[in-house]
Design a protein around this nucleic acid. Structure first.
Lengths: 314, 314
DNA sequence: AACTCGCCTGTTCACGTTAACAGGCATGCT
DNA sequence: AGCATGCCTGTTAACGTGAACAGGCGAGTT
């Protein structure tokens, strides 16, 4: 019992005893048994993160920020990834974390389908969604719509008549929001709204989408929904000998570390993934500490980074 | 007790009772208490992964593969990242995982300093190193030296007189090995060995390194130690109006998803990160199941992917 | 009928920790 | 002296599970 008091920094232990206990602990290589502690306190001091493909820059950055912030406050992070993006897969990942008795779960699940799954998730555990659209749980998200509007307005302000769009997959909230923001900006400026082309976030899909847009030479500016597709688009334009930014301006989204070194360096919208991760943890901890599940929504604005892929039309 | 038997699939329970128990379990929403189980069995069915910056493509891919394979065999994955690359930081991350009573740890720690740290890690827990150089624990690694040799020989076989090298940071095993492979190939072919330039893996450092190499116009081929630096190098060459591959050939390393869409598409060495992750888990599980800590080393060969950034010198 | 055997179910206890309570002892007050 | 008080340390029980053992009961054997 006295050992327990020393470990938990309780004041009712004399200095002498405390020192003796600590000495014995180091001597014996004693380590408190987390299982026994969890059994009696009912708290595991572990949080779960369920996420889609963590090789993507965004999710990976958030996960990293979450883990660091969690360790600082004495929590461990357990992960569960989604092999495929559907409700069942989400349910299994969620269940795997529940089975470990995590005290709360952060869901990095930017799909409409996983948001639906979140609606059916157990209500007796703290949950926070990241980029979770209109999920019935507290949410942290970057203001995608605003970012897309900024991107589009940046291109319009340079003098482009209108702006094309290579969109992300339609079952992603981020893709939907960026599409809306682009649409908003063009509508507000009373410009023609070109038909959009849809990709799947991959460089390859950006490449293919751009090849389709090459057939419309009147288009002098394209807002690409993420940087990876933008690199594919740059490739396609380069192959078609269409100079960027001389003949076509390009704006991306994300500001991945490579973006600055594309040919040409990419104008894009920076998302503070680390901040998103930290905020989501803070929001989760509120619930873990006892606050009721709210529908609070923290929105983080993106930032336009102007580089060399945009300029006035020729 | 009978419930315990049903949960653990023991055969000595009648069909009728089993069904009744299962029915009651679903009705009550019963979930076994992992803490109690861990307390009595002494096993947590949790593994730890300590890793440097998991936003890098390689570590992220391995982590993902490890998590999937682990969940398949009923193990949870807890993560601990290194805020900085030194022994203390490694020790803290390792200790955080130990404190959670993980049954084994995979260390994705490609630095010489963390390998040193591994030497002083507790011996009473299963450990596997990934890219851990000559760590005193079982190791899984890609044959970096072979890959670098293949890259260099590919360039020599195209007719280049010699091959320059933009190396990675000297405290990384991978950088050292790639440098050796490059050196080996040039030595074997009896070619002049140009002075290398060192970067830090980032696109920016590749950019700066390439700018230095521009001062040596006789160099017609460069082996860049990773794809991110390669994109920076391509950028620098593009700015200097040095055509790739017409005037200079470039080979990268990693085959990140973007590599195919660089300008020009990058010839590079593909590392099967997923395979590395799975193998490291398998090796760890051997120890967890009771095998003694060996110094077994699993080496996975990289694969040359020829694209458009290499050709014969002009 | 008495016994053995196999099949199934139940009982007891231990795992390591912490909450709650008990109690020893020195100090200071009446 | 007697007593209350505060400070510290010790005791007991409980958390939920599974190992080990106990035992009931029906079927088959002698």
């Amino acid at each position: 019992m006295t050992v327990s008091r020393v470990i938990n920094d309780q004041p009712t232990v004399s200095q002498v005893t405390r020192q003796r206990v600590l000495a014995a602990m180091t001597e014996l290589g004693y380590r408190p048994n987390v299982a026994a502690r969890a059994l009696v306190t009912g708290r595991t001091r572990t949080l779960g993160v369920v996420s889609i493909d963590t090789t993507l820059y965004g999710p990976a950055s958030m996960l990293l920020a979450i883990e660091r912030a969690a360790r600082d406050i004495g929590y461990a992070i357990s992960i569960a990834s989604l092999p495929s993006v559907d409700r069942r897969s989400f349910g299994e990942a969620f269940e795997a974390l529940m089975a470990q008795a995590v005290e709360g779960i952060i869901a990095i699940t930017p799909h409409t389908s996983t948001t639906t799954a979140l609606r059916h998730a157990p209500k007796d555990i703290p949950v926070v969604a990241v980029e979770g659209g209109r999920a019935p749980v507290p949410t942290v998200a970057v203001d995608q719509r605003l970012g897309a509007r900024i991107a589009t307005e940046h291109l319009l302000s340079l003098g482009h008549a209108t702006v094309g769009h290579i969109a992300g997959p339609s079952d992603w909230h981020e893709a939907q929001e960026r599409e809306r923001g682009w649409h908003d900006a063009l509508t507000d400026a009373e410009r023609e709204i070109p038909e959009l082309v849809r990709g799947d976030w991959s460089p390859r899909s950006g490449y293919e989408a751009a090849r389709k847009l090459i057939g419309r030479p009147e288009l002098t500016a394209i807002f690409v929904a993420n940087d990876q597709m933008a690199i594919g688009a740059l490739r396609a334009l380069s192959e078609a000998a269409i100079a960027v930014p001389e003949r076509v301006s390009i704006v991306g989204f994300d500001d991945i570390p490579e973006a600055e070194f594309f040919t040409p360096p990419l104008t894009t919208l920076r998302q503070e993934f680390g901040e998103v991760g930290r905020q989501s943890l803070a929001l989760l901890m509120e619930q873990v500490e006892g606050a009721p599940r709210s529908r609070r929504r923290i929105v983080i604005p993106p930032e336009l980074i102007v580089r060399e892929s945009t300029r006035a039309p020729y």
